[in-house]
Design a binder for these strands. Sequence first.
DNA 1: CCAAAAGTGTTCCGTCTACACCCATGG
DNA 2: CCATGGGTGTAGACGGAACACTTTTGG
Lengths: 224, 224
Amino acid sequence: MNYYSEHSKVWVSVDCIVFGFEGDKLKLLIGRRQMDPGRGEWSLYGGFVRADENLEDAANRVLYSLTGMKKTYMKQVGAFGAIDRDPGERVISIAYCALINVTDYDDLLRKQHGLEWVNIDELPKLYSDHNEMVHKAISLLRRRIKTEPLSFNLLPNLFTLTQLQHVYEAILGDEIDKRNFRKRIKAYDFIEKTELIDKDHSKRGAALYRFNKKHYNEESSFKL
Amino acid sequence: MNYYSEHSKVWVSVDCIVFGFEGDKLKLLIGRRQMDPGRGEWSLYGGFVRADENLEDAANRVLYSLTGMKKTYMKQVGAFGAIDRDPGERVISIAYCALINVTDYDDLLRKQHGLEWVNIDELPKLYSDHNEMVHKAISLLRRRIKTEPLSFNLLPNLFTLTQLQHVYEAILGDEIDKRNFRKRIKAYDFIEKTELIDKDHSKRGAALYRFNKKHYNEESSFKL
DNA sequence: CCAAAAGTGTTCCGTCTACACCCATGG
DNA sequence: CCATGGGTGTAGACGGAACACTTTTGG
């Protein structure tokens, strides 16, 4: 116990970087900070880690309080611990990135917390080092989306190939050739065409597809 | 201040995952833990983060105390915070991965700290969640070495192409075709052939090469 | 009837992979 | 003189990129 007591303890928080996809744009969920220091500034949503709580649990608790969602995709982005990153006290924060399906998200809850979806290419200045966190999350996301089936977390269960393509374009920030994209997608059995047709986004109607997680786990290789 | 004080503080430490390359093997620097809890177990080397110290500074301080080296490659692996990861108290640890050139490392210092180089494929059970940290570090390293010039951190300033190839093979865990490897290397101007010949590792002698960081920064693209 | 999005194949080019032999030298 | 590691080129396979027109239907 002596071993520990001679060293100082610090506050540890988690911050959630919540991405959603809406209107062909990748969006980030941010709010106005409700407390000092930094009251009123745009900010990620976070919370302190409790003594009896894992880091992941803390991040999930924060996310749940915001969105009412559990079991969403969540990944650690990293620890941020510059001495003066928090203007009040020394606080080390672990950033987590979540990908959520906006259509599952209760908009009432969003408004209750005073949160907004903002385009990632129109981010305002955020509180403390939160911009840095977001940039790191985006660059991780760009890397991972090429080899992991992350895009489906941002879409409804049923989606069109055009929507799927827009997710990749929004994240990678580049246009993709439609024919080449669809050729690649069709090579994967775990992206299943259904009999259903989406008529909301086009006059002609587009086939709806579904991600089959079980088949994905069997195939194991993926490369966009 | 009220905002903070209602939450609990925790200890935060850093742990250093130090990789080296020796005898065609990727090695990890570990030691026997000198203190309770866990005295005598194999362990990474770590230390508590001080109140007036950035995370990176803490990791560099720990690494310096071990190896006498500064300005080595160092990258955050992630935060580990399971409630019971430390058998004594709640401690959250940020793992950092360092790549060092073993020939620059004062072996006396190694012995003073009772440290050993062990092959990464012969790792013993380590204290607490340190095996998990190492695995995450290795998988990050495998990913990054394909697009970043990390391998040179593990080699002396002057190295042969065979040594360089062995670094990639050790990290990726796979054999590489010699002719294909050398073809790719020669396409990069920032890997410069010198007039010097290494006679230590072969009878015939092998040309020594050098990594030119300045040229690398100008070229900007790299893909093994 | 026309605007708007869905859907569909082929060709070309560059990149990756597989593969085997001669060279120089220390012991 | 021979064992050991150093050094070199080519051909075929494969995957990625470029590219344009027809279909359907709501308004």
